[in-house]
Amino acid sequence: MDDFLVALGLVLVIEGVLYGGLPNLARRLAAEVLATPEQTLRTAGLVAAAIGVGIVWMVRT
């Protein structure tokens, strides 16, 4: 549970830096996401999740 809370905290830090420090970039990225086809977003999300699981697995073993 501690690891989950640390990971959640890191996500919030990254999001906060993006929105707080670079709001124009955040708006442009949001517009790009809206213009991206659903299948592309789904594929990118699943690939990112798989890479994340792989990283966690490598670090934990």
Rank of each mutant, 00 (worst) to 15 (best):
M1T: 08
M1P: 13
D2M: 05
D2F: 10
D2Q: 06
D3Q: 11
D3E: 12
D3K: 07
F4W: 02
L5E: 15
L5H: 09
L5T: 12
V6L: 10
A7Q: 05
A7K: 02
A7P: 01
A7D: 08
L8D: 07
L8Y: 10
G9I: 00
G9F: 06
G9L: 00
G9P: 01
L10A: 04
L10W: 04
L10S: 05
V11E: 00
V11Q: 00
V11G: 00
L12M: 09
L12S: 03
V13Q: 00
V13G: 00
I14C: 01
I14A: 11
I14N: 00
E15L: 11
E15W: 05
E15N: 00
E15I: 07
G16Q: 07
G16D: 07
G16F: 09
V17H: 01
V17F: 09
L18P: 00
L18A: 06
Y19A: 01
Y19I: 09
Y19S: 00
Y19M: 00
Y19H: 13
G20Q: 07
G20L: 08
G20M: 08
G21S: 09
G21P: 03
P23Q: 06
N24K: 11
N24R: 12
N24D: 14
N24M: 08
N24A: 11
L25P: 03
A26V: 03
A26S: 12
R27G: 10
R27E: 14
R27K: 15
R28Q: 09
R28G: 02
R28F: 03
L29F: 09
A30P: 05
A30F: 13
A31C: 02
A31F: 07
A31V: 08
E32G: 14
E32N: 14
E32Y: 15
E32M: 15
V33T: 10
L34I: 08
L34H: 11
L34G: 08
A35S: 14
A35I: 03
P37T: 01
E38C: 01
T40A: 12
T40K: 12
T40S: 10
T40W: 12
L41F: 04
L41C: 05
L41V: 11
R42P: 06
R42F: 15
R42S: 15
T43H: 04
G45A: 10
G45L: 03
L46G: 03
L46W: 12
L46F: 14
L46V: 13
L46S: 10
L46H: 11
V47D: 10
A48N: 06
A48L: 14
A49V: 14
A49G: 07
A49W: 09
A50Y: 06
I51H: 02
I51G: 02
G52Y: 04
G52A: 13
V53A: 14
V53E: 03
V53Q: 01
G54Y: 09
I55Q: 04
I55G: 04
V56P: 02
M58V: 13
M58C: 02
V59T: 14
V59M: 14
V59L: 15
V59I: 15
R60S: 12
R60N: 11
T61S: 13
T61E: 11
T61L: 09
